[in-house]
Every structure is written in structure tokens, then in C-alpha cells.
């Protein structure tokens, strides 16, 4: 400890290799997200916080949802779902495009419509560890 200005003097060569490997491994584990994504089989539509409909993604369908401002039309096809038309101004829900993975959602704020794809198994909540 004589005049150490940087902690890197304290690390051995192997320590530095471990440090860099750990950093890379944690950054690489962001990629795990894509690998873990599961295709959903069911979706729920909520209007103004209330359950409006439960939709199976397995059969093609068109659903008209009455939102707070007007009508939102949802198209279901090939295990995916999208909003094809909406009475809202900005059409953000339509720009979202197709969604198919568990946990994905489309929100139309002016119509207060939320479409969520349900997780296929397990609990919807994580836990907070102490």
C-alpha cells in the first residue's frame, strides 16, 4: 500500500482477466432475453382497467373493442395480434405492429384499451428479495 494511486495495481493479471470476463458475461446475458422469449397463446383485452375479452391467439379472428372514444379493431392471425384500426388521433397502437411474445402489450391510451399477451406458465409476479 505504498502510494497506490489506482486499484489496478492491486489486481493480478488473472484478476484483470476475471474482471473483464465477468463484465463481458454480464453484458452478454442481455442476449439471454431474446432466447427466453416465449410465444404466447392467449391475450387479454382491458378497457378502462376492466377485463373486456380473453382472446386465443391460435384461431384467426377480428375483434371489435369499444373503447372510451370509439372502436378499436384487433386482428389475430398465426399466433400474433395487432391493432388494424383505431379511432384515436396518434395511432400509436397501430404503429406497434404485430405482438406475439408473452408479456408483450399494445396500449391505446385515448381509448383506454390495453392488450396483453399472457405468460404461458408461472406467476405473473417476480418477488423482491430482501
Amino acid at each position: 500500500m505504498t502510494g497506490c494511486t489506482s486499484i489496478f495495481f492491486l489486481l493480478t493479471r488473472t484478476d484483470k482477466i476475471i474482471l473483464i470476463a465477468c463484465l463481458f458475461a454480464s453484458l452478454a446475458s442481455f442476449g439471454v432475453r431474446n432466447w427466453l422469449q416465449q410465444e404466447g397463446t392467449d391475450a387479454v383485452v382491458e378497457v378502462n382497467g376492466r377485463l373486456y375479452a380473453r382472446v386465443s391467439l391460435l384461431q384467426p379472428d377480428r375483434i371489435r373493442v369499444t373503447g372510451m372514444q370509439g372502436e378499436v379493431c384487433i386482428q389475430v392471425e398465426d399466433g400474433a395480434l395487432r391493432v388494424v384500426s383505431s379511432t384515436c388521433r396518434n395511432k400509436i397502437c397501430m404503429q406497434r405492429g404485430w405482438i406475439r411474445h408473452a408479456g408483450d402489450m399494445i396500449v391505446c391510451a385515448p381509448n383506454r384499451v390495453i392488450i396483453r399477451i399472457l405468460p404461458t406458465s408461472g406467476h405473473p409476479f417476480d418477488m423482491i428479495t430482501g
Binding site: I7, L23, L27, S29
Partner: peptide
Amino acid sequence: VVQSRQIFYLLPLLTLPAVFTGL
């Protein structure tokens, strides 16, 4: 506890700070 694969989404959120705290 969770038994859902999606918990591994949290992996980078846990390991990235762990590099710093471990150091």
C-alpha cells in the same frame, strides 16, 4: 419460488452491479 423461465430476464440486472460490488 417463481418457476418461470422469464425470471432469467433479471440476469444482467443482477450480474452487472455484482461486478462492481464484488470489486
